[in-house]
Amino acid sequence: MQTEVKAFLRRHGLLAGFGLFLISVALSADAFLTPGNIFDVLRQVSITGVMAVGVTFVVITGRLDLSVGSLLTLLTVIVVDQHNTSGPAMAILITLAAGIGVGMFNGVLVGLVGLNALIVTLAMLSFLQGLVLFYSGGSNVNVQNAQTTWFAVFGRHDLLGVPVPALIFLVTAVIAAFVLNRTVFGRQVFAVGGNETASRFSGIASRWTVFWAYALSGLTTAIAAVIMGSRVMGAQNTIGQGYELTVLAGVILGGTSLLGGSGSIWRTVLGITMLGFIQNGLLLLGFPYYIQWLVTWAVIILAVWIDLGAKRGRILA
């Protein structure tokens, strides 16, 4: 009996705790479970969510991508700036290409050359932050025809009553889940994260698998930047700051293991969404906005702890 409770808590403890949290916030803050607020949260999480979908691939290969925060800033600046000079369609294309390009660059260093993922992407985080200032000259950029451009669709409009960014998040997740679970590439991602040596003995080019995972992470960050740019209709030089950790927190809160080899897109979607509601709930309860940094911290520690516990449990018991 006791062990069953333990097993249940290990497997569904986070979800159960989250349910309790939802109920208690709903009881004390009337605004919490209103459609307006829920859509607000969805709009909010769709940016981190889309990024987290790509990062999930990287984490399953047993690596990290901490560069996505700065990359989001850079790409948002690019999309807004290019919108003014080259028009929305061109701006989006350039942004996607730049995102994939930076992802591939990480992929070359971590995957092909074999450098440490933490160091490479942390360095990239810093490098891109510098690049942002170069690009923007230190001033904020804004979309000039914000009221009339169709670029507003991605961040500001609703479709059938649902925010478009939430739909983009959903579609990205569906496609990613299909790629991860049903395609050759997805299988390779799991294999490389589970046992790289055995993957090589099975003829899998593990370095290229890692390379493409980083490219994907760059792509999803670019999609997130389009949403961000459209929503804000401008970009500050710090707009993506700290996103890398929120994204990572969502991924591991969902239960994708940092040790590689296991995880899922739906868990990431769940993790990111839970995180969004927790932060929103705390704001509605009257906590100051910077509480979100503490939450991110707590979630990362807790989730990693549980993950390690489960791993240890599986190896020993």
Binding site: R187, F190, T197
Partner: peptide, 18 residues
């Protein structure tokens, strides 16, 4: 060298011939 231990038997079997 032989197996991805977290994977099931089926996925291990087809791994070299995806």
């Amino acid at each position: 060298q032989g197996l991805v231990l977290m994977m099931g038997g089926m996925e291990n079997t087809t791994l070299p011939h995806l």
